[in-house]
Simulated assay, not measured.
Amino acid sequence: MSLTPIFFLGFFEASIAVFSIIYFGYTLLVHSNVQIPFGPLRWLIASPQFHHWHYANQREAYDKNFAGQLPVLDVLFGKYNVTGDKVLEKYGVDDPIPSTYFGQIGYPLLPRRKLLNRAAPSTEA
């Protein structure tokens, strides 16, 4: 669906298909659990290690590594997290996440106050 405008601009279906295969393959690579050193290309091409820091629940990773393909954009806007060979300690968020599918879909829509109240430890004995 997102490539529909490209089709209407006159690109050939075969070109769109090749691009789609490469792009979706790259997306699988970036989200995979592997550590591949990209060397000097790490500034140009997002690696799995670079992108994993976007999902980290560690202070040094907060609001970092937003770029899906071009880490140089994060460098330009001061959002690049230089991680070296460091491995993530924890992913996700500290809030309790619902276990059901629809609960997880609606989770971002809940008011923040309710999330804080749910996550607060009980003081009743």
Rank of each mutant, 00 (worst) to 15 (best):
M1E: 09
M1A: 14
S2K: 12
T4D: 03
G10Q: 05
G10A: 06
F11G: 08
F12E: 13
S15T: 07
I16N: 01
I16Y: 01
A17R: 08
I21T: 10
I22W: 03
G25S: 14
Y26S: 10
Y26C: 10
T27C: 11
V30Y: 13
H31P: 10
Q35N: 09
Q35G: 07
P37H: 09
P37M: 01
P37D: 08
G39L: 01
G39W: 06
G39P: 02
P40A: 14
R42M: 07
I45W: 03
I45R: 01
S47F: 00
S47T: 09
P48N: 01
Q49I: 00
F50K: 02
H51P: 13
H51S: 07
H52E: 08
Y55D: 09
A56Y: 05
A56C: 08
A56Q: 03
R59N: 15
E60M: 01
Y62N: 06
Y62C: 09
K64P: 01
N65P: 06
N65V: 02
G68H: 02
G68L: 04
L70F: 13
L70S: 08
P71R: 00
V72F: 11
L73F: 10
K79I: 03
Y80G: 00
Y80V: 00
N81L: 10
T83C: 04
G84E: 07
G84L: 02
D85W: 02
K86W: 02
K86A: 12
Y91M: 15
Y91A: 12
V93N: 07
V93I: 14
D94H: 04
I97W: 14
S99P: 10
S99M: 11
F102E: 08
G103F: 07
Y107W: 12
Y107A: 13
P108S: 09
P108I: 04
P108Q: 04
P111K: 05
P111H: 15
K114L: 15
L115F: 09
L116E: 12
L116M: 11
N117R: 08
R118K: 11
R118G: 12
S122M: 15
E124V: 15
E124Y: 06
E124S: 08
